[in-house]
Amino acid sequence: MEIVMSIVIGIVFAISVYLLLSRNLIRVILGTLTISHGVHLLLITMSELQRGAPPLLNIGEENFTDPLPQALVLTAIVIAFGVTSMLLVMGYRTYKEHNTEDLDQLRGSADE
């Protein structure tokens, strides 16, 4: 499972990077969204999948999966939401101001 997950993560990263390299602002935003999925899955995969029960002490189990990556990922999910929404609005405002979503046209002047 871990190796399969690693390959899946690799695919997610490759696709996200490809999206981020795109000229289209909307694709770049989608890329940030998918790359965060890749990061979350990577963190979870590192903690040995499916060994033991969910980290809840009152369910009568002895072995638990590692709770620390879960806490990290939970934080990361919420932050990713904040970042994505920020980026989304940035893209939205950029489009409204400049009337283009083409990043090559948003370059600014050559001397900047």
Binding site: Q50, P54, V73, V78
Partner: peptide, 28 residues
Amino acid sequence: FRAPDLALTQLLIETVSVILFMLVFVHL
């Protein structure tokens, strides 16, 4: 992967995100 908290969070975040994307993409 036995992470109920994460699953719940991801589910809710995704819902909110989809609404957000819909709102913005209308204008894009």
